[in-house]
Amino acid sequence: MSENLVTALSELKEKETLEIVQSRLDLGEDPLRILDETKEAMEVVGKRFEEGTYFIPDLVYSGEILQAVSEMVKPKMTKEDERKRLGKFIIGTVKGDIHDIGKNIVTFMLDVNGFEVHDLGIDVPVEKFIEKIKATNAPVVGLSGFLTLAFDAMKETINAIENAGLRDKVNIIIGGGNINEDIRNYTGADAYGVDAMAAVAYANKVMAS
């Protein structure tokens, strides 16, 4: 039974997944056990994305199915799901840029991989990043941007973090359409990533140190 749920969800079988969850809830099973298995399934999804057999649509679809499962399970929960989180990660699309597809994928992959993600959304002014760093003490900040204007906005954001005296407290990774080593150097970020897994790998590295 437990294999079925992991397989059904990781193979993106929506109907089958929801049927399995419903029948197990009907039998009075502990909802936390079901959630644990969905977590396992999402790890498979993440791994396949990393390996290159799954693509963004697969992530989006698995996320949709997962959300439907959560909505079914939630009313049966007696206490809050206290999943252990690996660490905090602040993310946002920098000021002036309203693109969010890439940022959302990174957020999703970080979440699936167990990080506590604080997503500030799009067109994020520098002050919002600073407030969030102060409020959460997150060790990693991800700056996203698709347009070329984002290069300057990233640089300004990082400068502002520096001026606020917070630069030593955070590790900053940037990512987006045309981000590369030149842009990393220009903006003063610590790292850049070309895909969502780069952010996960970087976060893991930072949290381990």
Binding site: F49, G52, F55, I56, P57, V194, D195, A196, M197
Partner: peptide, 15 residues
Amino acid sequence: AATRDGKGGFMSLDQ
């Protein structure tokens, strides 16, 4: 695709 090897983009090669 997102990268040169075809991984991770908006759709798979089959799609």
